[in-house]
Design a protein around this nucleic acid. Sequence first.
DNA 1: GAACAAACGGAACATCGTCCCGCTTCCATC
DNA 2: GATGGAAGCGGGACGATGTTCCGTTTGTTC
Lengths: 194, 194
Amino acid sequence: MTDGEQHAAPRPKRADARRNAETLLDAAAAVFVASGVDAPVRDIAAAAGVGTATIYRHFPTRADLIVAVYRHQVEACAEAGPALLAEAPTAHEALRRWMDLFVDFLATKHGLAAVLQSDDPGFAPLHAYFLDRLVPVCTELLGAAAGAGEIRSDITAYELMRGAGNLCIGAEDNPRYDARRLVGLLVTGLGAPN
Amino acid sequence: MTDGEQHAAPRPKRADARRNAETLLDAAAAVFVASGVDAPVRDIAAAAGVGTATIYRHFPTRADLIVAVYRHQVEACAEAGPALLAEAPTAHEALRRWMDLFVDFLATKHGLAAVLQSDDPGFAPLHAYFLDRLVPVCTELLGAAAGAGEIRSDITAYELMRGAGNLCIGAEDNPRYDARRLVGLLVTGLGAPN
DNA sequence: GAACAAACGGAACATCGTCCCGCTTCCATC
DNA sequence: GATGGAAGCGGGACGATGTTCCGTTTGTTC
């Protein structure tokens, strides 16, 4: 692993392919901001100046493209977990702040929350990535708070994250609906006795 | 308004048309149970033994068909609100029980919750019907509990219902996710001081 | 510079919601 | 009971979208 990019590099990719992958990521990010994560594939291809097949060649499924676009933001969120646990006054408070981070991330990506909960098997990789990366972090926060007796212990990280994700659906461009507040309420509710 | 069915009935519909509308409602209900509310229109038409155009003639949009299928259940839920307020020990408890009813309704209809929160303008009538009918009921429950000082008063009925609806997304056929419990947590959270 | 494989673009295919057109069926009237 | 006109109907047409296929182009290597 000399380049820290892939687990193994049997064949170095062609230069134009690498360039196109970059272009595609940038174009997709831009289109996602402008039109939401469910923008037509053709639009993304057009924005990148490539054919539609090129997208599928680099990213076998739509979900893979979305994962690639948001990967570093998800990483940042995951890494913030332990940090918050260390600096917040209580584990419950750390959980609350981490949830705020998660919600801030989701709520600003048009339609990402909705697509994240979709049961369309095509989005399974997206679903899996978010869960694999973030559920362990959430489990740690949840366990710390439960261990300290600050919250009830009959809720799983999966359930809480899924709930928070769901609450973020349709949150953008709706002034009458504040997902942050509702997630806050959920976290508050955790603190009540069973 | 002698029949309480329509605001005005300029022309009595033809007998076969009325029969088809009935057949369509039954078929749609069956297909919704079997394949979810987002079953292809063609499937519903086939189940009813009619052409696709017939569906659109009776129900201008998909949403209208869904509304028609579930109308009486929504009515029942709406009417349960005042009843619960009268019989429950506290307004907060009445709100909790009413939310349980609402969640039970939503969670058993494959995909209804998801489609209910969709921002697809095609579903606007569906959205509007649910909101028009249920938000006033929820407002009453919420107001009663807030008036009694049992819950905080900075959450609107719209926000709470939308949140509960969102939490129901993907609840069916997922044993690891209990929407009822999460909505319960949300209602519990309402009881904490601001 | 030539050959080979990787990569590409765009058309082709499948699916789905929705609309249109020509035919059928009902029913008020005679 | 016959009949004409309108309401209603079926299925195919159209447009949008995700995904795949194939002939062509382009980078890399010798």
